[in-house]
Nucleic acid binder design. Structure first.
Lengths: 336, 336
DNA sequence: ATGAAAGCGCTAACAT
DNA sequence: ATGTTAGCGCTTTCAT
C-alpha cells in the first residue's frame, strides 16, 4: 500500500513530443488516421506503443460531447431470457467501438428510474430499456436528454423514441389457439402478474380462449415467477383445485419445465393427461424429455437490432422504421 | 430528425445562478452536503429539481481522476454461471454509487485483452477479471495503470493484485473422492479443454482417481462445452466406446443434465447403470429428476466480494486478505 | 460556510 | 497535412 513514486500518467502531449508532432496530430492518428500522412502515422503509432499510451476518454467525451457509451437496463441477468439480449447488444456495440454500461433493475421501476438518472450523467450516446412501461420521470428526462432511446421486448403504438420487439399479446393468443387446434379444450395459463410482458401474454391467452368459447383458468405465480420451482408449484395447485385442465400454457420455459418434472414426479403423463407449453424456447425446452412446445423469441436479435438502431441514428441515418417487429414462432414439440 | 432548437444543456453554473450561490457550492451540495449550510443546501436542491440538472460526470472524472466506474470482464452471460457473479457485483456497486462497465470475452483471450485496453481509457476506479490466466500485455497494462484489480473464480499463488474464488482443483478432486466413497469404481470425467477452470477440475479428478488406484477416462467436449446438448453427446460417445464407466463427473451442470436426459432417452438407469455428477449447483441440478449430485459454488458471493474488495481498497482500507477463498460444497442428490 | 482561480486532457474550429 | 487556440464542465486548491 506504499506506492510512493506515482509515475505521472502519460498524456497525449507526451506522445506528441516523442513523435515530433503536435497533440492534435496524435488525436487524428487515433480517431481519423486517414487524415494523417503515412510516415507521421507510423511515428505516432510507435510513440504510442513505446509509452503505453492510453487516451483519457473522459477528456475526449467532455470536449466532443460523444462518449461512445450506450447504456442498457434489463430486469435481470439471472436467466437466459435477457442475457441473450445483452450479449446481442454487447456484440453489436463492440464491433463498432462502443461500450456497454449495464444495470439490472430486478423488475423494480424505482431501480430503473434511479439507473436512468445515474446513467445520464455519463453522457451515454444512447439508451436501451426493457419494456414499454416507464415512470413519467423517466420519460421526461429522456425527452429532455435528446438521445436515441430504444425500448425492447414489446410492441406498442407510442414508444419514447424507437422500439424493437414482438407482440407478447399475439404470441400468447397464438400458442393458445395452437393448443386448441391440437385438441385441448380446457387450457389454463400460469404466470406472474408482476411482469408487464407476462401480463400481455395472459391477455392474449384470455381473449383467445374466450373467442374459442372455452373457459379461462389462471394460476398466478409468486413474484418474478422465473424459477423452475415455481412451475412445480403450479402443478401442485392445479391438481389440488381439480379444475380439470387438459393443457397449461406457462409464461416462460422455466415454469413449464418445472411443471413437467413435477408431473413426472407425480406420475401424471405429459401430454397424455396434461399438456404443457412454455414460452421463450430456451435450451431447456429443446433438451427436456419430452421436448417443450413453446414460442421462440428472437432474444439475441432484439439486442443486436436495438444497438444497431442506436448506432444508425448516431451515424446520422434517418431511421425510417421506428418500430421493429421481430416476430415470434410457435415451436411444436412432444409436450403438447 | 429536424431537431432545430437545440436547448443548451443545463450546467452547474445555471443551477448556481438560480440558487444564488457559486458553482462550487452546488458541487458540494451534490457530493459532500455536510459541508454546506442547511438553507443553502435546500435552495440548491430546489434549483437542481426545477431545472432537471444532471451533472456531467465526464467533467467530474476529468478533474477528480475518479470515475466511480468499475469495469468487469466475464467469459459469457449466456448461462447462469457468470450471470450470478455479475449480479453480485452490480448489486454491491450500486449500493455504493458505483456503476458497472461490462464486457463478455467469449472465452477469447484476444477479446479480453481488447476489452481491458478499451476499458482503461474510461478511467475505471477498479477492474474485475475472470480467472487467473491473462496475457502478458494485460498484466503489464494493469501493473502500469495502478488500479485495484480483482481476479475471480479461481485460486492461485500470484494474483495480479487481489483474488476471490475457490480451488477448482480441490473441488474436482473432492467430488471424485466422494463418488469413490459412494462405491463407484470406474469414474470418468467430461469437460472442455478450452476453459482453464474446467481443466483444473479435470486435474483434480485425475490426481484423485490415480491416488485411489482407479483408471482415468476422459471425454473432451466441444468448444465451450456449456450446452445441454454437449452433455448428451458425451453419453453417446461413452456408450459407443464401451469403456464400462459406472460414474461420470461433468465439468458443469448443463453437461450433466444433458447426459441425464440422454440416459433417460436410451433407457440407461441413473444412477443404477451410470451415476452422474455435475458442477455448479445451478437450479437445474436441484430440480431435475433425479436431482444432480454436484458441487455448489458461491457465484453471487464471488461477485459481491470482488466488488467489495475493490471498493474497500478505494476507500483507503489496507486490504489484508489479498486472496479470498470462498470455498465450495459437495451436494449429494439422487443421481450419484 | 462559501467563493475565485486554475486546470484536468482532450478535440472542434479555424488557421496555414 | 499539420498546427494554434480555446474551452468542454467540472472539482481541487487556496483564500476569505
Amino acid at each position: 500500500m506504499s506506492d510512493d513514486v506515482e509515475k505521472p500518467r502519460i498524456r497525449m502531449r507526451d506522445v506528441a513530443r516523442r513523435a515530433g508532432v503536435s497533440a492534435i496530430t496524435v488525436s487524428r492518428v487515433l480517431s481519423a488516421p486517414d487524415k494523417v500522412a503515412p510516415e507521421t502515422r507510423a511515428a505516432v503509432w510507435s510513440a504510442v506503443e513505446a509509452l503505453g499510451y492510453v487516451p483519457n476518454l473522459a477528456a475526449g467525451t467532455l470536449k466532443s460531447q460523444r462518449s461512445r457509451i450506450v447504456a442498457a437496463i434489463v430486469p435481470t441477468l439471472r436467466n437466459a431470457i435477457f442475457a441473450e439480449t445483452v450479449e446481442g447488444m454487447a456484440d453489436a456495440l463492440r464491433a463498432e467501438g462502443y461500450q456497454l454500461l449495464l444495470a439490472a433493475s430486478g423488475y423494480d421501476p424505482a431501480i430503473e428510474e434511479a439507473s436512468v438518472m445515474a446513467f445520464l450523467g455519463r453522457q451515454p450516446d444512447g439508451l436501451i430499456l426493457t419494456g414499454i412501461e416507464h415512470s413519467d420521470a423517466v420519460r421526461a428526462r429522456l425527452a429532455a436528454a435528446r438521445l436515441p432511446v430504444v425500448e425492447t421486448w414489446d410492441l406498442g403504438a407510442s414508444p419514447i423514441d424507437m422500439l424493437v420487439g414482438f407482440s407478447n399479446y399475439d404470441a400468447g393468443a397464438a400458442i393458445t389457439r395452437d393448443l386448441a387446434r391440437s385438441g385441448y379444450r380446457r387450457i389454463a395459463f400460469a404466470g406472474t402478474e408482476r411482469e408487464a410482458r407476462a401480463v400481455q401474454r395472459r391477455a392474449g391467452y384470455r381473449d383467445a380462449v374466450r373467442a374459442l368459447g372455452m373457459p379461462a383458468t389462471e394460476v398466478a405465480v409468486a413474484a418474478a415467477g422465473l424459477s423452475i420451482a415455481d412451475g412445480a408449484d403450479v402443478i401442485a395447485r392445479l391438481l389440488a383445485e381439480g379444475g380439470g385442465a387438459d393443457a397449461v400454457f406457462f409464461a416462460n420455459d422455466y415454469l413449464a419445465f418445472g411443471a413437467l418434472v413435477e408431473c413426472q414426479r407425480r406420475g401424471v403423463p405429459v401430454p397424455g393427461q396434461l399438456a404443457i407449453a412454455g414460452f421463450g424456447d430456451f435450451e431447456i425446452a429443446r433438451e427436456s424429455l419430452p421436448g417443450l412446445t413453446t414460442v421462440r423469441i428472437p432474444g439475441y436479435a432484439i439486442g443486436r437490432e436495438a444497438a444497431g438502431l442506436v448506432m444508425r441514428r448516431l451515424a446520422g441515418a434517418a431511421v425510417d422504421r421506428r418500430i421493429v417487429d421481430l416476430g415470434f414462432e410457435i415451436v411444436r414439440r412432444a409436450s403438447a
